[in-house]
């Protein structure tokens, strides 16, 4: 037996062990992503499975995305109007709302809501499928769960999140119109013409869409990883679901900063 370790040594040991664990988890996550990419052609061909997942992740997320989009747009233009009116520039409220939504708030808030609504459901479902041995049963029936369960969900997230974010933005702009034009009396012509002249297709719309695809990959991979690695008990599944929401939210915000600094600098 070696001699007992000092406090500092145990601390160092614990730190090292945690670091190794995290590195191993990153490795497993990367391998999962690779196997998902390899399984993509199979997922595209299984239209029935893909449609179901597009419905579950996309269509069922619509109510929350649309409502949130409307309110975010309304609040944005209300705040914007109150500031801009002091400079007699309240016509700019349309372009300000649209730019904020397209560049930042649409992708970020949409993805955060998506993580809470669809990501958590994905983790919980896969965790429970594991704890009720459904995944093992698939393997025993010679059906690859990566192709049958994980890949369709991954692809569905990549398809639906950008579409959801487009709708979020559209409803946001409509909410901004309601508040500034219908309520606060900004001229409708100025509202739209300022918006169309300020918003650039590549700079704003395409960049926002690129962000939303990146966030979709991020949320889906975190949700699947947490589901696959959840401890198959009720406690394990619940903490995995929590981790999905926390990790993807932080991931979205972090990646948003990186992407913004690349795109708009």
């Amino acid at each position: 037996m070696s001699r007992p370790l000092s406090g500092a040594q145990t601390l160092l040991q614990g730190l090292g062990a945690t670091l190794l664990d995290k590195l191993a988890a990153f490795g497993r996550g990367f391998l999962l992503m690779l196997s998902l990419v390899v399984a993509m052609p199979a997922a595209v061909l299984r239209v029935d499975l893909l449609f179901k997942q597009v419905y579950v992740t996309g269509v069922l997320s619509l109510p929350i995305i649309l409502t949130a989009g409307l309110f975010v747009g309304m609040v944005l233009s209300l705040q914007g109007y109150n500031i801009l009116v002091d400079f007699n520039a309240e016509e700019a409220v349309g372009s300000m709302t649209a730019l904020s939504l397209l560049r930042e708030l649409g992708p970020v808030v949409g993805a955060l809501l998506f993580a809470g609504r669809a990501g958590s459901a994905m983790t919980a479902e896969i965790g429970l499928m594991r704890s009720t041995e459904q995944i093992s049963a698939l393997e025993m029936m010679a059906i690859d769960p990566i192709k049958f369960v994980y890949a369709p969900r991954f692809l569905a997230a990549i398809i639906t999140l950008p579409l959801l974010i487009i709708m979020f933005n559209a409803l946001g702009v409509f909410g901004g119109y309601l508040v500034s034009v219908s309520w606060l009396g900004v001229d409708a012509g100025a509202f739209w013409s300022q918006m169309t002249s300020q918003v650039d297709w590549n700079e704003d719309v395409v960049n926002g869409m690129i962000k939303s695809v990146v966030f979709a990959v991020l949320v889906a991979i975190i949700a699947l990883f947490q589901g696959v690695n959840a401890i198959p008990t009720s406690e394990g599944v619940s903490s995995a679901t929590t981790r999905t929401v926390v990790h993807s939210s932080l991931g979205i915000l972090g990646f948003d900063f990186i992407l913004t600094s690349i795109m708009f600098n």
């Binding site: 009720t132 041995e133 459904q134 093992s136 049963a137 393997e139 025993m140 029936m141 010679a142 690859d144």
Partner: peptide, 19 residues
């Protein structure tokens, strides 16, 4: 292995039906 498993059936404790 997946080919071999087609020759196997397994009854899980919980049944493990697809819910």
């Amino acid at each position: 292995i997946y080919q071999l498993r087609r020759k196997m059936g397994m009854l899980f404790q919980s049944g493990a039906l697809l819910t």
